[in-house]
Nucleic acid binder design. Structure first.
Lengths: 339, 339
DNA sequence: CCTCCGGTTTGAAAGGTTTCAACGAGGTTT
DNA sequence: AAACCTCGTTGAAACCTTTCAAACCGGAGG
């Protein structure tokens, strides 16, 4: 089997011209069955692999999308990716997943390579949605859809979930359950989601007629399980009298870490500390004290984003949209009122 | 900003020739600082984006690898992917992640597209390592490295972990802790890992002088949290006298589901049922009853695989290797001997 | 016998980049 | 003053496919 057979070689082997081979590949119906069979035979024998670069160079199109995600190890984003894949598969497109790992320079390397690759379009959950590079990519002609964040202007489509509302739901639920001293666990502040969820939490606190200071803010350095554990140490280290009786975590990873640490320090959840997470990843329900969490429609988020992207890539009179989904509180044992 | 400026346009705008523009891109040191600046300026003004297809067509190389993974939502695989990214980043290469979602047809679509794209090489955790298509891809010239499975022959490199040993470690640990009736939870049988881990479990059972039938096999339909819960129901449904006192799960997702279900049915872990998982994903340690698990060197698995792939792609006298890592048991509360 | 027609096949051009041998202009050596 | 370098730059060829107008062919209709 020759290493690098091209259409030319296939044509020679099958005794037809270049154009015919190309027709077999692209418009098989225009080729008589006999020739087609002969050409296909030759392809198999030579181990022919169509050169996508040459094809794309000439034909212009490409059948791949890409999703540049913030953290491939966070189940929230892999679920979003699943939604994207569903929508892409329905249109017979492939999805390349790229992991920026929350590092701006990795993100821009991927954006650059994808742009050069002339993918149909790029879905991205950006490290910083306000950074101009996103707009520039779009400006240069590659459709961009922002997922789970909202950019500053309306320069591209975006799909997000109302995080302020989510924060409000979480804290309202805790207030309803009778908690008065509530901690907000999350950070760093540079992450838009964290700011919005905190804003929602504050809004709920005030709406209940309480001072905004009744919300104790515990700042973390990242939204990870390990940081959740550290937050747990800090909270459990507080004197019982001033210790919050409930914690609202900016995501489920934090909440799981917090839960684990508190339990291992001997606290009972929810009796000593009620916990609300955010995202409702599958592991939240699977925690041994099943976690109350704010559910985001992860699959739908991804699916809608991909659909918008595909529309933008194909539809000449596409108009940018900012879709905002509504989160929903899922109450479980971690906030059950102690009876 | 023009949509589709090429080197030609840049050259015209900067008042230099094609070749010079290309030199600015590829060998900047050969171009005088003044011209370079002028060319770069023109690129910015025109919004020039290098066309990777044309480049690759002419230059032949590509700076991307791909990892086709079985399940992007299983943290085990995303951790492997992280290892791959580390190794790739060190060589200034990018990684595209593709999710086959355990479906053979999706896997082969991705393999085909990647091959056509002429990626440097493909890492894959295949649905079926014995399927000939993998060998064919390699045969046609794209290096392939199998991750976390071992192919039938030595037609490509592979990196895996000794699953038989892992199974043995798990069951030996349970026997040491005094358990006699042990369940193996896992399936379907078509998955190589499941078979190997079960074989290890049986070997340990026999080595302890017990009948292989002392191992109760609870077959699941997939390695997911939901299936783990179902297994929990079944196990807890058994009469106390015949119920196993310990369960060894083929992966951590199953173990977490099992743990959750048992706890919610009122069983105490480990007193009523000890549980051992497999993979030692981060969520295992974070479970409220921290899970004993068989740790696989996930990052190293990925890193080593990527290094082998890069070697194969670049080194003319590369020789295929099958690397086998050794798993390690991490004991935690879920198997602590009740005192 | 000629024309026309439909279905097939052909051959050449085009697409944007990289590469490389060759060129020109200064400067250095003999 | 001639021969020789060096450094920057040039222009054309090559990469492999797709596309499309044109050629081909055998048969039907006039």
């Amino acid at each position: 089997m020759a290493r690098n057979a091209g259409v030319k070689d296939v044509a020679a082997a099958a005794g037809v011209s270049l154009g015919t081979v190309s027709n077999v590949l692209n418009r098989p119906d225009r080729v008589s069955a006999a020739t087609r069979e002969r050409v296909e035979q030759a392809m198999r024998e030579l181990g022919f692999v169509r050169n996508e670069s040459a094809r794309q160079l000439r034909a212009g199109r490409s059948r791949t999308l890409a999703y540049v995600m913030l953290d491939a190890t966070n189940p929230f984003f892999t679920d979003v990716a699943r939604g994207i894949e569903e929508a892409a598969e329905a249109q017979d497109m492939s999805v390349f997943l790229c992991n920026s790992d929350s590092r701006a320079e990795r993100e821009s390397t991927y954006l650059e390579r994808l742009e050069q690759q002339r993918v149909q379009g790029i879905l991205v959950t950006p490290v910083d949605p306000a950074h101009p590079s996103l707009g520039e990519v779009a400006e240069r002609g590659t459709p961009v859809v922002v997922v789970d964040r909202v950019g500053p202007g309306a320069e591209h489509c975006s799909v997000a979930v109302d995080d302020v509302l989510g924060g409000r739901l979480a804290v309202e639920h805790l207030l309803d359950t009778g908690h008065e001293r509530i901690a907000f666990v999350g950070g760093p502040d540079s992450i838009g989601q964290v700011r919005d969820r905190l804003a929602g939490a504050r809004a709920a606190t005030e709406a209940a007629g309480r001072s905004p200071d009744d919300l104790v803010v515990v700042t973390t350095e990242a939204l990870t399980v390990a940081e959740g554990r550290r937050a747990g140490e800090r909270i459990m280290g507080l004197a019982r009298a001033s210790r919050p009786t409930a914690a609202f975590c900016a995501n489920d990873l934090l909440a799981l870490g917090l839960l684990q640490q508190c339990v291992s320090l001997g606290a009972r959840v929810p009796r000593d500390l009620a916990i609300v997470g955010y995202d409702d990843i599958d592991f939240a329900a699977a925690a041994a004290v099943p976690l109350t969490s704010v559910r985001q429609p992860r699959r739908d988020l991804g699916r809608t984003a991909a659909e918008l992207l595909i529309d933008e890539a194909g539809n000449p009179d596409h108009r940018h949209q900012q879709v905002l989904f509504t989160p929903e509180l899922v109450a479980r044992a971690s906030t059950r009122r102690p009876s």
